[in-house]
Design a protein around this nucleic acid. Sequence first.
DNA 1: CGCTGGAGTTATGCTCCGTAACTATTGAAA
DNA 2: TTTCAATAGTTACGGAGCATAACTCCAGCG
Lengths: 241, 241
Amino acid sequence: MVRAQEGPRARYREQTRSEIKQTALGQLAESGVGALALTRVAKEMGLSGPALYRYFANRDDLLSALIRDAYDDAAAAVGQAAAEAEARGRSPRERLRELADAYRAWAIDEPHRYLLIQGAPVPGYVAPDDTRGRARAVLGPFLPVFANGTPEAGLAALVVEMTDWLAEDESVGAWVAEYAPDVLGDLRAPSYALAGTVLVWAQLHGSVGLEAAGNFTGMGHGGGTLLMAQLNLLADAFALR
Amino acid sequence: MVRAQEGPRARYREQTRSEIKQTALGQLAESGVGALALTRVAKEMGLSGPALYRYFANRDDLLSALIRDAYDDAAAAVGQAAAEAEARGRSPRERLRELADAYRAWAIDEPHRYLLIQGAPVPGYVAPDDTRGRARAVLGPFLPVFANGTPEAGLAALVVEMTDWLAEDESVGAWVAEYAPDVLGDLRAPSYALAGTVLVWAQLHGSVGLEAAGNFTGMGHGGGTLLMAQLNLLADAFALR
DNA sequence: CGCTGGAGTTATGCTCCGTAACTATTGAAA
DNA sequence: TTTCAATAGTTACGGAGCATAACTCCAGCG
């Protein structure tokens, strides 16, 4: 993370930046996004006010950094689960379950960070360009899971739309190629992979989002069961082994 | 809405309240939740500052009113779709589709209002008590759709959890009784209805939430197709006619 | 027809964002 | 080792916005 060759100046700077982010995360967890105040972060760190502007251009810049980190963390969690599943020779069905579980576990463990990337429509805030790529990195490991599945009839329209999407936007093909390279020769597999991934994306967003926002309190801890139920439907719909 | 017997004073008051809400909604659509500022609402109305405090205790109170209205509107949209489907003698499968479509249509038509109730985790804001009831009113019409379905094996765990939930929380049974009264005699139907409704809740939250937050821009207009695909899976899983 | 209560006003204090102008430290080059 | 320029930090400031207090004014009620 910290490169020594860049000298003590840069190192110290990076350390402070990370300390700021840490403090900001703490306040985020306590009081929510809207309450994130540069002044308060500074005060909590023993600094005073404008000092933080040396490290982040403004509040949105700090927020962007936190969001970037959250994406990267989520991607790492899912990616690690994928690597483990690979190493253990899991079936597609098991892999789907384990990947989704890793995603959910990360989200529930730090709901405030999840809510940050969950699509939380922060007011005038415009997501930086690299957000799309980072979001795709989170979902990428799901692509190979569905690449060998066969979607049932009810998903035909979605598959068609995915095919169109592939034709329209080159970056989508590149995304598939990066995470499911062994499927490029097949004509239909990329569309299948995309359809399954988009579906799992929506399902994760749905059940994990509701859970992270606290909508399940008072109804047992339904989050896991609900997600598993949805995954079962999805796995069946793709006839995953 | 406005009761004449309460005299001109009360009527005028109610009218101003509603004008405030209207103006606030406009700013909400333009600049997002976080940017909702009492001062700016007042200025746009030609009033100045503290005048609004006659009508709303504070910013959160105004927000609460907007959220309440949004829930009621959504419930009305879904409820009306249910009434129409009833009148036309739709099959459960068709009803599911039409109810979900009505929900989505309302949400996409006014995304800012949808995002308000979507679980948008407003910072220190705590939802008033009646929120739960209003949320349930939105989803209630889905209950009878699933009451006569038969959930497939993969949903067993979820059904069990719903049964537990029914046993623990009386209000849940009352909710089912209100929207699907003809099912009370049956032992399993209420759990089935709940399982289906919770699933459709999560699916709606997933796909409509992503669409409303703008995550589908640049991939065709996938919102409708995605939702339909999910509904097909769900209808199949409950063997809906 | 008086008067009370509600509508609206200005004034004030607080918090926070973000900029400007300044000081002091310290790493790095000569 | 000495100098010096970049960097970390400071106080001072102006602008928004929330919320309260104290006031004026008017209209509907009795």
